[in-house]
């Protein structure tokens, strides 16, 4: 069954008086894997922030439907400078993903602990649970943040350039984890990526932005479109 999970209708985004993106419309079904591509400054991150609920659209509407609501979003933001030397254990970080489910109770429940442990085990960081987050490698840190995002939602994952600064091998590992999450749980994935070739390999839908929508559709259509051919050709 193809139920629409998220619908963007004629969304315009910007900062103060400056418009970054306009007339963005698309919709995604459950289990879709969308890659948002485009050049720097095309408004990719701005759109992602809006989908994650960090920014309000200037015009237009984003609606979640069916069983999903605003809180059911697992978000993987770009890393900040504060995090790199933040004294915290892996478990503490992953657990903090459970906060939206225990909004009335100030402390974590047993179920929260189990969920966090399961996700850590699944992403291969189970034995790192008590290690210090800042002493991990970039790839391990990204797995930790993914586990945290999975604790926050099992329906939709929004990723903002998840492989920035990682070496090719680790990049491949992260992409295959994301692919697995998409397949195994039928989670909807929305990912911003610089790397259009990998995007095309993994995603089933592509949204190409250049201050407005240049292309939205399935990956096959994108590969045959002039926008797609030009952009992928340009990257070689």
């Amino acid at each position: 069954m193809n139920s629409t999970l998220i619908r963007c209708s004629d969304v315009t985004l910007g900062y103060e008086n400056m418009t970054v993106l306009e007339h963005v419309s698309f919709e995604l079904n459950k289990g879709d894997y969308l890659c948002v591509v485009g050049e720097n400054g095309a408004g990719k991150s701005t759109l992602i922030k809006c989908l994650a609920g960090l920014k309000k659209p200037m015009e237009g509407k984003i609606t979640f439907s069916g069983s999903v609501n605003r809180r059911d979003v697992g978000y993987l933001p770009q890393q900040t400078a504060i995090q790199r030397d933040f004294p915290t254990s892996v478990r503490e970080v992953v657990m903090s993903g459970c906060l939206n489910n225990s909004r009335l109770i100030p402390f974590y429940s047993k179920a929260d602990r189990e969920r966090a442990a399961n996700h850590m085990a699944e992403l291969g960081i189970g034995e790192l649970a008590d290690k210090s987050y800042r002493e991990l490698s970039g790839g391990q840190q990204q797995r930790v943040l993914l586990a945290r995002a999975l604790c926050a939602s099992n329906k939709m994952l929004i990723l903002d350039e998840p492989v920035t600064g990682l070496d090719p091998i680790v990049t491949g590992e992260i992409y295959s984890i994301i692919k697995k999450i998409n397949h195994k749980y039928g989670m909807t994935i929305i990912m911003v990526s610089h790397d259009v070739k990998t995007a095309v390999k993994n995603a089933n839908k592509i949204l190409h932005l250049k201050n407005t929508v240049q292309f939205f559709g399935s990956t096959e259509e994108y590969l045959n479109s002039s926008t797609g051919r030009e952009f992928i050709g340009g990257q070689r």
């Binding site: 960090l54 979003v73 900040t80 933040f86 903090s96 906060l99 939206n100 100030p106």
Partner: peptide, 22 residues
């Protein structure tokens, strides 16, 4: 003490905390 977990989340990663509804 009551808000310890939320305070941690907000300190460690504000955007993520905001996205999950904190």
């Amino acid at each position: 003490v009551l808000f310890y977990n939320k305070i941690f989340a907000v300190t460690f990663d504000e955007p993520f905390a905001r996205a999950t509804g904190v």
